[in-house]
Design a protein around this nucleic acid. Structure first.
Lengths: 112, 112
DNA sequence: TAGAATACCTTGCAATACAAGGTACTAAAA
DNA sequence: TTTTAGTACCTTGTATTGCAAGGTATTCTA
């Protein structure tokens, strides 16, 4: 349990972009919970299982995602999530929101 | 009460960088709650009063900030917050955390 | 003396990341 | 056959925290 200020803030920052980054990942190709977690880990965005499952369910309820079951030779079947048309539309909005935020931080940071 | 997916996500994204952006602003010069809110508004980061006051108090408790009272000719006295040495140290860590996150998003977004 | 503007602050609610704990399937080792 | 390891699914409870709403106090102006 790291309660450091930085660690806590990293969590906070991650928080903000989780749905966004999941949609980004699924826009590039279907994936299941563990594969998404791994993709995020690759870019140092660390997410717990307990975070991602409810989130995928939420995004599915919002109809930004759907899923299909697929057999695996490595264990139990996998629930492959796919982005929907609505998901892609929302993603475009999130792209814009992210750009705006990043620009805002940039401005504050550089003082102009 | 906008419950749209985008609007909600903007809130989430904001959430993650609020402490960071406040420290950035105060690192550039002392400020009081309203002036900080206005600076954030300038870069399209919209924050409510009910958010910023508890947050400043929290950052003060963590000793990242201190404050002094200052008279105003425009109304009641203002509580000017100042970043501490510890605050600057933590800010450096947050700079790094932000850069890492931004880089991560970039990678996911561009697919390499 | 009333109203507007500015400043401070608190309470309660809702959203949500995550730790912890649980189920189930496959494959390989004992 | 049984056990263990690996993979995958999911839920519950807790803690955090942004914000709407509501409240107090000061200064200036009409």
């Amino acid at each position: 349990m790291d309660t450091g200020i930085i660690e806590n803030n990293k969590t906070q920052m991650r928080r903000g972009v989780l749905e966004y980054s999941i949609l980004l990942i699924l826009a590039a190709g279907d994936g299941y919970a563990s594969s998404i977690i791994n993709k995020l880990k690759e870019v140092n965005i660390i997410v717990a299982e307990g975070t991602i499952y409810p989130l995928l369910i939420r995004l599915k309820k919002l109809e930004l995602l759907t899923y299909r079951w697929e057999e695996s030779t490595q264990g139990p079947p996998r629930k492959y999530y796919m982005i929907t048309e609505l998901g892609r539309q929302q993603l475009a909005g999130l792209d814009a929101a992210w750009d705006e935020l990043a620009k805002g931080i940039e401005i504050i940071r550089n003082g102009y």
